[in-house]
């Protein structure tokens, strides 16, 4: 006499099939695809900054732009408004870009870590868009400019206070390569 109840066949079939699925998933993880890796995009990552690198870069080079013009602007918390200090930087950028018209440009928008992921992606996009629109208003052709948002996923500064978060709320103008 058996008091066991039997299980649904579909579940047993799934269990039996499971190893196949696992094997395929593992194959996938080994056979991933390659894409462009992140390149240095600012003075800190290049080991350059205004204090010890100013003037050393070749005029018209990306280093010149980063070091002597300033490749980034900063934003207030949860804001995409262009601040007065930021507009000065963007004015210099627009001037430089007019002088060196062969560079295509990508404006990267970023958020600090004090927000949720999805919103910060959109906030970064809003900041990139604000910077782009400012540059266009200063004569940079819109077709030279692309934008991308990284949300809170690419902080430059890592710490746990306000001074640090303020460095991460930024839009970085990246030269996308001459002659593009």
């Amino acid at each position: 006499m058996s008091r066991f109840t039997s299980t649904a066949p579909s579940r047993m079939q799934t269990l039996a099939r499971n190893p196949v699925m696992v094997a395929l998933v593992l194959t996938l993880s080994l056979a991933g695809c390659k894409s462009k890796s992140g390149l240095p995009n600012n003075a800190n990552e290049l080991g350059l900054n205004g204090a010890n690198g100013a003037g050393a870069a070749t005029p018209g080079s990306p280093q010149d732009f980063t070091v002597n013009v300033g490749d980034r602007i900063f934003f207030d918390t949860d804001s995409s408004a262009i601040r007065a200090d930021a507009s000065q930087t963007l004015d210099r950028q627009a001037q430089w870009l007019a002088q060196y018209p062969n560079y295509a440009i990508t404006v990267e928008g970023h958020a600090d870590e004090r927000g949720t992921r999805e919103y910060n992606l959109a906030l970064g996009a809003r900041r990139a868009s604000a910077a782009k629109n400012y540059l266009v208003s200063r004569g940079v052709p819109a077709n030279r400019l692309q934008t991308i948002s990284y949300g809170k996923e690419k902080p430059v500064a890592v710490c746990d206070d306000i001074s640090c978060w303020s460095q991460n709320r930024r839009a970085v103008t990246v030269l996308g390569g001459a002659g593009m």
Partner: peptide, 27 residues
């Protein structure tokens, strides 16, 4: 196979059995 017993009610509540590949034992 397993059985679940109600100790104070002195009865079996359920009993079931499952078949699977050995590597699925956690499942």
């Amino acid at each position: 196979e397993f059985r679940l017993w109600d100790t104070f009610g002195a009865t079996q509540m359920t009993g079931q059995q499952f078949f699977t590949q050995p590597e699925n034992w956690r499942r």
